[in-house]
């Protein structure tokens, strides 16, 4: 089966004062049709850059993004528009992602106008169907974004992403700006829509609880690289990478998604070898010099030289929070 989305050695570097910021540094991932792949990590690990590079808001420095087997980097004009119809995005900030001067009707008609679909009357009817689909009253179309709550606005953002019936929706922290009670409603909406329409999600979040709830598989990112890729339920029960363990224990202890008490090294000057070695409690000499590649272990993939040993040493001791 051709994966719906494939990332091959994807890198995105930024030239900044004092060097090169490696926001993404060689990411390989694949996403199957109808699947949800969660991306987790602390802030600054490259999650948002990953989303923007996948969706084409930023050009990759190296590597490529393939949608349904087709590299999208060089596309322009008509073929690029065709890709846009297959892949949409839900943004993080429900207050910034809707044009404050446009009515909701206008915002939801825009996708059809841009792609030259339907007559004016049809566009209105489709827009009505969209607000219904995301659970908003049908008189929403005449109102402006500021008349809605954060959760309702995020529903409008989801409706816009749905308009062109995409195969993939990239969700960049879609619920992190919402109240916890509203988060669950929006997540359930995303799950319902996935069941009804067979959409795949690339779901980016710093919140492990949210990712566990919605994702089929999870990729853990650390300083621009994937350190562990596993099924969602199993990563929770049996994390293989020491960094994943740390993230999970931080959730169990602190209740917050942000793991570290100590400094995260800067992606401007990433540590040599394994990038996690300065914070890793199991660090060995080899970790300081040699960067581990992702490899198969117990049906998951992990980038750690000593994952077996670490896993064995914690075999009797179930992972915190599991």
């Amino acid at each position: 089966m051709t994966p719906l989305l494939e990332l091959r050695g994807l890198a995105r570097h930024f030239a900044v004062r004092g060097g090169t910021l490696r926001a993404l540094d060689g990411v390989d991932l694949a996403l199957n049709p109808g699947e949800t792949l969660g991306i987790v990590g602390e802030s600054g690990c490259g999650k948002t850059t990953l989303a923007k590079t996948v969706i084409g808001l930023q050009a990759p420095t190296a590597g490529e993004v393939l949608l349904e087997g087709q590299p999208i980097a060089a596309l322009k004009g008509g073929p690029l528009k065709a890709v846009r119809r297959r892949m949409q995005m839900v943004f993080q900030d429900p207050f910034g992602s809707l044009n404050p001067r446009a009515t909701v009707g206008r915002i939801l008609r825009e996708p059809f106008i841009v792609h030259g679909l339907g007559t004016r009357a049809e566009q209105w009817r489709w827009a009505e169907e969209l607000v219904e689909k995301v659970g908003l009253p049908s008189d929403s179309l005449r109102r402006h974004p500021h008349e809605f709550s954060g959760g309702q606005r995020q529903r409008i953002g989801i409706a816009r992403a749905l308009a062109l019936r995409p195969a993939l929706i990239v969700c960049d922290e879609p619920v992190s700006a919402l109240d916890v009670s509203v988060q669950a409603q929006v997540l359930n909406l995303l799950l319902d829509l996935q069941q009804a329409e067979g959409i795949s999600y690339l779901f980016i979040s710093h919140d492990l609880g949210v990712v566990e709830y919605i994702a089929d598989r999870v990729a853990v990112m650390y300083l621009g690289r994937v350190v562990e890729l596993s099924d969602a339920h199993r990563i929770w029960e049996r994390p293989l990478h020491p960094y994943t363990r740390r993230l999970l224990s931080a959730v169990a202890i602190g209740g917050a998604g942000q793991a570290s008490a100590d400094e995260v090294p800067s992606p401007l000057n990433p540590p040599s070898g394994c990038r996690y070695h300065p914070r890793c409690p199991f660090v060995q000499d080899r970790c300081r010099s040699e960067a581990p590649a992702l490899r198969q272990l117990e049906g998951a993939q992990v980038a750690c030289h000593f994952a077996e040993k670490i896993a064995a040493s914690h075999a009797d001791d179930p992972a915190p929070g599991g």
Partner: peptide, 17 residues
């Protein structure tokens, strides 16, 4: 840089528009 402008890029809207 605002997200609603980025959303329009993602929709495929042309720059002049």
């Amino acid at each position: 840089e605002r997200e609603f402008v980025q959303a329009c890029i993602v929709l495929g809207m042309s720059r002049p528009r």
